[in-house]
Computed example of a mutant assay.
Amino acid sequence: MSHITEQINAYLEPLAQDQKFSGSILASVHGEIVYSNAFGKANIELAVDNTTKTKFRIASLTKAFTGVCILQLVERGQLHLEDPLSKYYPNYPNGDHITIHHLLTHTSGIANYTDDPHMLEWAVHSSTPEKIIERFSQKELDFSPGEQYKYSNSGYILLGAILEQITEQSYEQYLHEQIFEPLGMKDSRLDRPDYILDLRAAGYHFSEEGTLLNAPFFNSTNAYSAGAIISTVEDLHIWDQALYTEQLLGKSSIDQMFTPVKGEQDYHYGYGWVIQETPYGKLVSHIGGIPGFASILLRFIDSGVCVHMLSNIAQDVSEIGKKIAEIIQESPVKNIG
C-alpha cells in the first residue's frame, strides 16, 4: 500500500503545486481502499484545506444516480424503458417517437440545453424542472430518435421530472430515501446554493490569462437530475461498492445499465455510464464539469480497481484520474481480495 501511496503522491504533488489539481482522491481495489488523500484548498480565501470529507459538486456523475433511480422504477413496474415521452408529456414535440431508453442513452436527438451560449446569464437564477424543460422543448431535434448518439443534459432533466410524476416525490426526496439513506451516504444530497453545508468546497477557474479566480456563480437548480448532486469521495466509495451488490438494483438491471448502446469512436454510452474496453478490461466511468468543479469516476469491472476524483478547479481531470488508475493497475496490490 505504501508503495502505491508514494507513487501517487509523487505524481500529484507537483500538479497541486502548479495549481493543475486541487481536490480529493480515493481509490480502491475490490473494495479495499488503497489510496485516500486531498490536495489544495477547499477555500483559498479562508485558507481551508481540502480533505476526503470535503463536499464537492460532482456535476454529471449525477447521471449515474439518475440512471439507477429510473431502473428502480422499471424493476417495480412503475415505468418501462419503451415508454414514449408523450406518456408523461403529451404535448412534447416528437414525444411519440422518443422513449425512456433514448433519454438514458443520449440517443433522443433532443438539443442539449447547456450548449446555450447565454447559459451563465440565466443560470444565476433558480429554476424549476419545468422551467429548464421550457428552454429546450421547442427546439428542433438534432436527429431522429435512436439514430445517433449526442450527449444531451436535456434528456436527464426529463428523466428527473418523469420520476417526480411517477413517485409524487421530488427528485431530492427520492434520492435521499432510496439511495443516500439506505447506503449511509450521509454527506451526499442534491445541492442548492442557499443550503448551509459544512465542509463545502468553493469553486475556482482560470481566466484566459491564466489567473486563478472565483468561478462564476451557477445556481445548481439549473443542473437538477443531470448534474446537481454534491458529495465526497468517501461517499462515492460507498456508492461504488453498492453497485457490486443488489442493494439498489438486481443483477440483470446492473448488467443492462453497463451495456453499451451508441457512442463515439472510443466509447459507448449505457444508462448513465460511459463504457469502454481497455487493456485492463471493461471500464465504466463518467466525467463531470460544472462552473468551479470537475470530477471523474473510473470503475474497472474486471480488476476491481476504482478511482474517485473530485476537484474544485474547473479543469480537465480525466487524464489525472486515468494515470492514478494505471499506477494501481500496474502494482501487485491489484491482486488483493
Rank of each mutant, 00 (worst) to 15 (best):
L236I: 05
I296K: 08
L175E: 05
S231Q: 03
L12H: 12
E319L: 15
K63T: 11
Q78I: 06
S252W: 02
T5A: 11
L104Q: 04
K53T: 07
Y149R: 03
Q19M: 15
A64T: 12
E130H: 13
G109H: 05
Y88C: 02
F217P: 01
T107L: 09
K251D: 08
E264V: 10
T5W: 13
A59V: 06
L141Q: 06
P291I: 07
I179W: 02
K131L: 05
I328D: 01
H125D: 11
Q7S: 07
G184Q: 00
T62E: 10
L243W: 03
V48N: 06
E164P: 01
S170P: 14
R299H: 05
I98D: 01
L248G: 07
R76L: 04
S318W: 07
K334W: 07
G272N: 02
P129V: 00
I324T: 02
E32G: 09
I238V: 09
I320W: 00
K20G: 13
I110Y: 05
G292T: 01
R135N: 06
F39T: 03
K63L: 08
E45N: 15
Y224W: 01
S144F: 15
A64W: 09
L71M: 14
Q169F: 08
T278D: 07
D116I: 00
H205C: 06
S154C: 04
D198F: 10
T99E: 11
